[in-house]
Design a protein around this nucleic acid. Structure first.
Length: 728
DNA sequence: ACCGTAGAATTTTTT
DNA sequence: ATTCTACGGT
């Protein structure tokens, strides 16, 4: 048996039995259920390395898919250190990145122009707004965001506008807009994120010879974070694996926290049925957290009904108890956290090894203020990324026009940026001309150039860029564009220093173009690696849309990490603070009446808890400023789900009431401020029936409560008038 | 063309 | 409270 032999090689040494089983599993469909901190990435990369090592596969036989660029990069790096093979011909990347590459290679079969552009979400939304305006539909009749969600949801279900029909007029209108949107994208040569996946899927599905080629090429397909896949990603994967490839999916149903963006945990169970997998290989040995932390996480997640079933264990000792602090208000909670951070720092723990987590971004403000006041350096995750900055998007719009002059969206973005005297009126004229002549905005501008010197100058600029784009080197073209467009000068002349700093970003963009190598970006094969010409520009623009850059603030110095629980997934820290643990915050108020939503929040809590290696703090505020109002809160049910013997109360221990599933301990002291009502309380109304209180607040002497009555909807009531009975 | 202000919204996020 | 957006005035 070669497993025996290879168990001796450095590649497989150090793996525990379950990891070894997963890595050396035969070339058959396989589902790995990998708990938090169980060495999931290591198993996945080692399996690929083992496949190459044992010559079961060549790099070009492997398709490895992740969700984020970061995960893909890490995998490539780690794999590179494990094997001597060249990984250039291995398809390793994100779903979107790989589909993008596929469509660049097969743009002809996909009926896309060679220079087709990728729309990011902001581009997509802007396109939708423009489209609604053109069709004369008000944004109240069709809310742009709703339409965007509708279109993406349809695409994720594999449905085109032509496939849809609906009885009600509103949905009918959405479908009509979807059709309009499809047509505009087609005319302008653009593809949104969902389109990349859907188009790639459709091309494979419609072309048996192409599908057969890829099915026989990819004998091993590996997927990371499988619990986050949506319906379309699942179909794409199973289509490619349908020719008998060994599909290896790694995931953790307990860490499925992206239902809101279409993730289907059910894909794990479906995969087992579809591919005849009897049981998943479980990785339950945790290498991250101390015993108490793990016990708490296990106890919390055990409350969820729908689980594939898994229980983490650790070889480490129990460690410290979990600390719980209930602060009087949000400011006091922040001060407590700052104080503990200082203390840990004194003990020699680097700040970078500590993280403060919260459910929603709004909670970061008070923490930031407090940390700033206490002179504790912090780094906050989230916010604008490099390629999302306005000045960068402006510059990219010029590049887009350079390679594709019919891109109306790009034209509208920069026709008067920097200001060149082409205002709303002139733009309207151009739009009218385009409409009546049935041509793109740029073509219309060409037609009108004789009538306006300003339009003529703009047309000349775009023509100039277009000509250079055919021959110039990408970096040269970018540098020329930034200067010739007037963007650089415009920002350089601004009064506000922050505006002037935008020129640095433009310089940085030129730099990025200089170092951009298409073949390195994703290991392209079949696509020219030339850095000159239209193809290079298109590839660079695709890279900018698909890889928006880092979204964490300035790195460098030792700093506490602040982020949402979602952003913390996959990371680990010695000390973790989970803040804002109140009913209505975490779990969020929109989840309170909904059992499915509560389970997702509980998984989120599970993710939060399992980030901690050695020390875990849980904290809450009895009163919190929210939307300009002081709201009262009771401890999160999730705190009550942690066995009491694991907790150490740093504040007076709140009274526990009831022995059931939901211990509303602390309710007695804090509910007073809400007139006896608090989030999570079950009530009954004579007319609306049973409901759950989402929020209680005092307004002008009276107490108003927001209640979710389920089918009767969400109502806001004044307790002085409404006849609400507490159900207990 | 630019600026100011009134009104609305307000989980989570990657691509 | 705050932040963003849309609209209207100068």
């Amino acid at each position: 048996m070669f497993e025996e032999d290879f168990a001796q090689t450095p590649l497989l040494s150090g793996l525990n039995p379950e990891q070894l089983a997963a890595v050396t599993y035969p070339a058959e469909p396989l589902l790995i259920l990998a708990g938090a901190g169980s060495g999931k990435t290591r198993v996945l990369t080692t399996r690929i390395a083992w496949l190459l090592h044992t010559a079961q596969a060549q790099p070009h036989n492997v398709l490895a898919v992740t969700f984020t660029n970061k995960a893909a990069k890490e995998m490539r790096t780690r794999l590179g250190a494990m094997v001597s093979h060249s990984l250039r011909r291995m398809w390793l990347g994100t779903f979107h990145g790989l589909c993008h590459r596929f469509l660049r290679i097969h743009h002809r079969e996909a009926d896309l122009p060679p220079s087709f552009q990728v729309l990011d979400s902001a581009d997509q939304l802007a396109l939708i707004k423009r489209l609604l305006k053109q069709a004369g539909i008000s944004e109240e009749a069709v809310v742009p965001r709703v339409l965007q969600g509708f279109i993406n949801a349809q695409k994720e279900n594999g449905l085109r506008a032509a496939d849809l029909d609906a009885p009600d007029p509103h949905t009918k209108r959405l479908i009509a807009c979807y059709a309009d949107y499809e047509q505009t994208c087609r005319r302008e040569g653009t593809a949104d994120f969902a389109e990349l996946l859907l188009r790639a899927y459709e091309v494979l599905n419609a072309r048996p010879e192409l599908l057969a080629h890829y099915q026989s090429r990819f004998t091993h397909i590996l997927v990371d974070e499988f619990q986050d896949t949506n319906a379309l990603q699942y179909r794409w994967l199973t289509l490619l694996a349908g020719g008998g490839a060994a599909l290896c999916a790694v995931g953790d149903d307990d860490q499925s926290i992206y239902r809101f963006r279409g993730a289907r945990v059910g894909n794990m169970a479906d995969l087992m049925t579809a591919f005849g997998i009897d049981a998943p290989v479980k990785l339950e040995q945790n290498y991250r957290s101390a015993g108490n932390i793990l016990a708490a996480a296990n106890a919390v997640i055990a409350r969820n009904r729908k689980r594939l079933g898994k229980n983490l264990r650790t070889g480490a000792g129990a460690g410290e108890p979990i600390r719980f602090y209930s602060a009087a208000d949000d400011a006091a909670e922040a001060r407590f956290i700052a104080g503990e951070i200082q203390a840990l720092r004194q003990e020699g723990l680097p700040l970078a090894h500590m993280a403060v987590l919260y459910r929603s971004n709004a909670q970061s403000r008070i923490l930031e203020q407090t940390l700033f006041a206490e002179r504790i350096p912090y780094r906050i995750y989230g916010g604008l990324r490099f390629y999302e900055r306005a000045e960068i998007k402006h510059a990219l719009a010029y590049l887009r026009l350079a390679v594709h002059r019919d891109d109306d969206h790009a034209l509208l973005r920069i026709i008067n940026m920097p200001p060149r005297g082409i205002g709303a009126r002139t733009v309207e004229q151009i739009q009218q001309q385009a409409q009546s002549a049935g041509v793109s905005l740029f073509a219309a501008a060409v037609q009108l150039a004789g009538a306006s010197a300003k339009i003529a100058a703009f047309v000349r600029l775009i023509h100039d860029l277009h000509e250079r784009a055919q021959v110039a080197d990408l970096a040269e073209l970018t540098a020329y564009t930034v200067a010739a467009s007037g963007l650089h000068d415009y920002f350089a002349k601004q009064k506000i220093p922050a505006e002037r700093e935008r020129t640095e970003n433009l310089d940085e963009l030129v730099n990025a173009a200089r170092f951009f190598r298409p073949e390195e970006a994703a290991g392209w094969d079949g696509v020219s690696a030339d850095t000159a010409g239209v193809a290079a520009v298109a590839a660079f623009l695709g890279h900018a849309a698909l890889e928006a850059g880092d979204n964490q603030a300035d790195g460098g110095q030792d700093a506490v990490q602040l982020m949402t629980v979602h952003a913390a997934k996959g990371l680990e820290f010695d000390a973790v603070f989970v803040s804002g643990l109140e009913e209505g915050r975490f779990p969020g108020e929109q989840s309170l009446g909904d059992a499915e939503a509560i389970e997702e929040e509980r998984r989120l809590m599970y993710v939060a808890l399992t980030r901690a290696k050695r020390r875990l703090y849980l904290s809450m505020a009895q009163q919190r400023m929210l939307h300009g109002m002081t709201r009262t809160g009771v401890p999160s049910r999730f705190v009550g789900e942690i066995p009491e013997n694991l907790l150490h109360f740093l504040s007076p221990k709140p009274a526990r009431r009831g022995a059931g599933h939901f211990d509303r301990f602390g309710a007695a002291q804090t509910a007073a401020a809400g007139g006896g009502f608090y989030a999570g309380l079950r009530v009954r109304h004579t007319k609306f029936g049973k409901g759950v209180v989402l929020a209680a607040r005092e307004a002008g002497g009276s107490v108003r409560v927001k209640v979710n009555f389920g089918s009767a909807g969400i109502k806001e009531l004044d307790t002085a008038f409404a006849r609400l009975e507490m159900e207990d």
